[in-house]
Design a binder for these strands. Structure first.
Length: 287
DNA sequence: TACACGTGGCC
DNA sequence: TGGCCAAGTGT
């Protein structure tokens, strides 16, 4: 029922995103999915175009120095994703003959690829039937199917089963519905102000039928940022990215006054492979 | 399971 | 203004 409503809506209303173009390879889809993890479409678009120009195949990215990869990642955030994408590219080049795998199990075995990204690559990169569960899909299902105002905590197995039950049998059509569920959550069935008047599913929506009751379940704890290690790491990485080569310790000391926290964060960047200390004691992005 | 992990825009 | 939110993953 939902699928028959979402499919034509998506074909008519889908945004013309570059990674949805027919000429986009599965590799391009994979790169887009890495970048889109927790990051809005508008900020991903220019970076994705740059990456695809520079590194059109996994082997091309794998051959690039880490520092180049981290600089190209820029300010997308969560730079460990860039490391994992770099490592995934190397694994694909070496173990999969430079071809992105199409099966979910092989994809999930790659660094940085979990349940969502594996299925997104199978569905959007290869047109296969794979239940894709992200925050948008969880919200759409919570409302349309369960009549809840919001999704609440993840129920991984049940979420997968819910979406699987919505997908048509045929691969191509199922992939369109998967994309449509996400698009509906992104454009219409949004978190704060759902536009039910424009929703192709409204007349079949359990939440609308129930009078759009407010969500009463547990709220997701809000992630603080100011003053956290995350903020400090970000500032340190910004210095390393912006410098053409190694920087003195003093340049890093300048970004945060709390020396203990600063040192802890710098050390964690070294451990994560996001930074290196040179022989002369300075710091830089990894070679 | 809960928490760490960047960044910036929006209402 | 500032909390909330954005195509998650790894531990």
């Amino acid at each position: 029922m939902l699928a028959e409503l979402i499919s034509p809506w998506f074909r008519a209303q889908a945004r013309d995103l570059p990674w949805r173009r027919p000429e986009t390879t599965p590799w391009g889809v994979l790169v887009s999915e890495f970048m889109l993890q927790q990051t809005p479409v508008a900020r991903v678009e220019p970076v994705w175009r740059d990456w695809m120009d520079r590194w059109p195949a996994p082997s091309a990215l794998a051959a690039a120095p880490r520092a180049d990869v981290l600089r190209a990642w820029g300010k997308l955030g969560y730079p460990r994703r860039a490391i994992r994408l770099h490592d995934a590219a190397a694994a694909i080049a070496e173990r999969h003959d430079d071809t992105v795998p199409s099966d979910v199990d092989s994809l999930e075995a790659l660094p940085g690829i979990g349940s969502y990204t594996a299925r997104a690559v199978a569905a959007f990169g290869y047109g296969l039937r794979a239940p894709v569960v992200d925050t948008n899909v969880r919200r759409v299902v919570a409302r349309a199917v369960h009549g809840q105002g919001d999704a609440g905590p993840a129920r991984t197995r049940a979420d997968l089963a819910d979406v699987d039950a919505l997908l048509p049998a045929r691969d191509t059509e199922a992939a369109v519905v998967s994309a449509g569920l996400m698009e509906l959550g992104a454009l219409v069935c949004t978190a704060r102000s759902p536009r039910c008047a424009d929703c192709p599913v409204a007349h079949a929506c359990a939440w609308v039928a129930a009078g759009r009751p407010a969500y009463d379940g547990p709220r997701r704890p809000v992630q603080g940022f100011a003053g956290t290690d995350r903020q400090v790491r970000g500032k340190l990485m910004d210095v390393l990215r912006g410098a053409p080569g190694p920087v003195e310790r003093s340049a890093l000391d300048a970004v945060w006054s709390d020396a203990g926290q600063r040192d802890r964060c710098l050390h964690s960047l070294l451990v994560d492979g996001l930074a290196e200390q040179t022989d002369d004691g300075r710091f830089a992005l990894p070679a």
